[in-house]
Design a binder for these strands. Structure first.
Length: 374
DNA sequence: TCTGGGGTCCTAGGACCC
DNA sequence: TCTGGGGTCCTAGGACCC
């Protein structure tokens, strides 16, 4: 069994499907073609969010500092809790695991170690339903059986770089001289080196002050297109969605980015600082228009368009500036409020900005400049 | 019918300033 | 006859993760 959307890629793989050699990221059409017996299900995000919350709650019974790393993973700092709980670290992990098993009927794999990087190695050591403890003294036994590319934070590019220098396993890396590491690698990889040597660098970050520090909306379209009006309508739609999400969380971006992905997977992007932080699409869409002109190359086909809101800070629709940046605020604030209400009541895309509606063929194609239609 | 969508963090280099 | 050294800020894009 796998989850994934039609025309998309595999996002989760059951152990039985894994055994067939199916991996995350495989296009769904290839699963259909090559593995006709595999069941393909759509994801059910709201359920995952629900169970995720219940799981984290159980972990929090035993640790105050719990970092929700992703929807199905967390780090818990249990340093020093062995004394008050009168349990070994292993026993604490066993208890958490047991309660999640019994109360949620979910199996989880747990790793216990002196650093986050080693805990990651430990949690992956036995799956499913595993529990592995790595101690400072035993770390090398695990690392010598871990290929370098399996280490959290070391991806394809870096493993190629490291392998060229004779580093094939995690222990090869951990045993490199500190001077070499300091001289040849950038910050994130130095941190991993220390962490594999049981020196904690990465902190468990219980609850970030902000839920999001950026919001992105992207969509791939088929067939790929070169039509500026169409591309702008895509960007426009994403701006609306991203701004709506920002408003839901009362966040305002200080900068924004636009990007296009070409048919051959090259990225082109523009990012810019907003003179006046805003989460009003009306203020951002004209910028997309300008930036699209700069990014767009004649005859190049694009497959994806995306928008990002960055440097999010708490705030309402408009952060006024000294020179009356709030002047337009009143005008649109009321519209957004009503649009947000409609969306909440009737679902997404009940109302949208005219510039978001073009498929490149309809009358919106005549849209010029930053004129908007509601 | 080639390869989704949503995130985080980091760095190189240009522009500008004193 | 060429033009140092030390900053800051900003953007484009890379790398990685789930």
């Amino acid at each position: 069994m796998v989850t994934g959307q039609d025309r998309g890629i595999v996002t989760a793989v059951s152990y039985s499907a894994k055994a067939l050699g199916i991996t995350r990221g495989l296009p769904i059409f290839r699963v259909k073609r090559d593995y006709p017996n595999v069941i393909i299900l759509p994801g059910d995000y709201p359920s995952y969010v629900h169970y995720s919350g219940l799981m984290f709650d159980i972990v929090r019974r035993y640790a105050d500092d719990v970092e929700e790393y992703s929807i199905d993973e967390c780090f818990a700092d249990i340093t020093g809790l062995d004394k008050p709980l009168k349990m070994t670290y292993r026993e604490i992990a066993e208890r958490i695991k047991k309660e999640i098993n019994e109360e949620l009927d979910l199996s989880i794999s747990v790793g216990v170690a002196p650093t986050k990087s080693l805990a990651k190695v430990a949690s992956k050591w036995v799956k499913p339903n595993g529990l592995t403890v790595i101690e400072k003294e035993t770390a090398h036994n695990f690392l010598e059986r871990t290929p370098i590319e399996k280490i959290w934070g070391i991806g394809n590019q870096t493993s190629i770089f490291l392998k060229k220098r004779g580093i094939k396993t995690a222990v090869d890396f951990a045993c490199k001289k500190r001077e070499w590491v300091e001289e040849n690698l950038s910050k994130p990889y130095k941190a991993i080196w220390y962490e594999l040597n049981a020196i904690p660098i990465m902190e468990v970050d219980p609850l970030p002050k902000l839920l999001y520090s950026s919001i992105q909306k992207t969509q791939t379209f088929r067939p790929p297109s070169n039509d500026k009006i169409f591309l702008l309508s895509q960007l426009s739609g994403h701006i609306e969605d991203a701004c709506a999400k920002a408003r839901r969380y009362d966040l305002v971006p200080k900068s924004i980015s636009f990007f296009l992905k070409t048919q051959d997977f090259r990225y082109v992007s523009r990012s810019l600082h907003l003179a006046c932080a805003t989460n009003a699409p009306e203020a951002i869409i004209p910028l997309a228009h300008i930036e699209l002109e700069k990014m767009h190359v004649k005859d190049v086909l694009y497959r994806t368009a995306g928008v990002g809101l960055h440097g999010l800070v708490p705030g309402k629709a408009y952060q006024g500036d000294l020179f009356g940046g709030t002047a337009k605020a009143g005008k649109f604030e009321e519209i957004h409020k009503r649009m947000d209400v409609l969306e909440k009541k009737w679902g997404r895309k009940m109302v949208w900005v005219g510039s978001s509606g073009s498929d490149g063929n309809d009358k919106m194609s005549e849209m010029k400049g930053d004129k908007l239609f509601l």
